[in-house]
Amino acid sequence: MAETKDILIDYVLHLADNSMILGQRNAEWCGHGPVLEQDIALTNITLDLIGEARSLYQYAAELKGGDSTEDSMAFLRDVTQYRNTLLLEQNNTDWAYTITRQFFYDVFHYYLQEALINSSDERLKEIAKKTIKESTYHVKWSSEWMIRLGDGTEVSHLKMQNALNALWEYTGEFFIPSTSEMEMQEKGIGADLNALSIKWRSKVEEILKEATLSIPESSFQQKGGKTGMHSEHMGYILADMQYMQRAYPRAEW
């Protein structure tokens, strides 16, 4: 029994860490966006992502019990305990990378919620019901930007294609199930990543076509984030994010 609970916690943390780390990255843009309206739009998305992560961390903390809280989940786990995929921790680099990273995640995130709405876990189901409304908007926003920039000017097209080429190798990890994902799928709690992968691919192809962008030929895919084998970025992200909780243990803020 205890083991099933641990697996569920691991799964919930994986879902939470994905949105948390992307939210943390996006938050770096706040005040620096290319135009005021889009600064606001990206911050809206960031607020949704961190909001979702909080619901999931709260759930994980309850499952874990003891003195766990949403904050101990987010701020007191170290790099190798984080379960987000590598894509989400990549540098913002520029607006092209940021939009492309967002788009890849949004499509995945949307279909994931579509699956989790039917989860046998009531709590995940509830969270997914709220999240899918948000991710519906996120996909729309990032798809429009993919198209606008892909099919904008020569410069923007090139920048987008470069970002796509660089980030493509981080997309496969979404669909390579971890042990906990496999177990959760078997139990009817988690999503079927195979089915999700087909939907993801077809939506991504549709949008990229309209954006006049092409999928790179190399098929090699990186993995590791889900099992704690992160890139070197991750240590810096957490150093920044966790600084206050580490410097002032057990303080109230």
């Binding site: 911050t43 961390y57 920044d240």
Partner: peptide, 19 residues
């Protein structure tokens, strides 16, 4: 201070404020 806010509640509130 957004990326360094001391807890999640404060992070969200600060983001929303700056927005």
């Amino acid at each position: 201070w957004i990326t360094r806010a001391p807890n999640l509640r404060r992070k969200v509130a600060l983001l929303a404020k700056v927005q």
